[in-house]
Design a protein around this nucleic acid. Structure first.
Lengths: 142, 142
DNA sequence: CGCTTATAATTAGATATCTAACTGTTCGAT
DNA sequence: ATCGAACAGTTAGATATCTAATTATAAGCG
């Protein structure tokens, strides 16, 4: 697969991330959600009364993509959108009781999954790993 | 963003991989390709006369997705498909001259990108990084 | 003020991916 | 030798994502 001197690190990274994301999504589906739903709930929970632009930035998707998820989740009764009276351009997103409940369920699933992912990996190795991830982001931002 | 004791490693991994993949795709677009086109060319080149099932496995996508890319690339004149006379179920994929040329161009772009990605990261750190990636795949496969 | 520019969100349309169902081909077991 | 299971690929339809264009609102400036 590699007509290169060294195995390209981006390919390894991308492949692993895909497998991990698929496994995580499967775990969330089992718990009654999906990965994008979880990320949306998490971003709304983590920032009281953020607007959609900020939420999308937190998740790492575009505003248009978030609109799409919010439409579905609003239709499912997981959250509400209302205009900010102070600035009528922005929509304030809030979880309903059902949204809060799903958040809690998925949070448990996420904790279990995170534990599974860390199996056999001591904190210091994971810390070094996170540093390399940060360096890769740096190298790519320029 | 994290109502967790520790920052979940999957999220960090996913976010970084996405940024890296987007930057890589941008570099490939600049060189006249895209990420899936590059991966397809690479898989065809790396395995003389593989069938589509094997190619898809190499890339890490489903057969149906590969069919989609092959249709487009065949229409663009980058490759050809013909039935294997030995087993008429399988389609053998081969690059045209244009496909070979694009492969070479994108390979150069990939080399440049890989070098950019490695900036400031000595081989030993990258080796440890790759080991953790492998461990994560292990932890998720179970 | 009134006009231009900037901002927040949505809409429209494209691409990449998946799963499930279908088509065609081969193989194996009776 | 035939028929059913397995296999390779395609097709159909869904989801997630992106960019570009549009709508509505706000802010700045002359």
């Amino acid at each position: 697969m590699t007509p290169f001197e060294r195995p390209p690190i981006g390919m390894n990274l991308g492949r692993t991330a895909k497998l991990v994301a698929q496994a995580f999504d499967a775990a969330l589906v089992e718990a009654g959600g999906t990965l994008p739903v979880w990320l949306t709930l998490l971003s709304v929970k983590s920032s009281k009364l953020a607007n959609q632009r900020e939420l999308a930035g937190m998740i790492g998707i575009q505003g248009a993509t978030l609109t799409h998820h919010l439409n579905a989740m609003e239709a499912q009764g997981l959250l509400t959108r209302r205009r900010d009276p102070v600035n009528r351009r922005v929509h304030l997103v809030e979880l309903t009781a059902a949204g809060e409940a799903l958040f809690e369920t998925l949070r448990q699933a996420a904790l279990v999954f995170d534990k599974r992912l860390r199996t056999g990996l001591p904190d210091e190795r994971l810390a070094e790993f996170a540093k390399v991830l940060a360096a890769l982001r740096e190298n790519v931002e320029s």
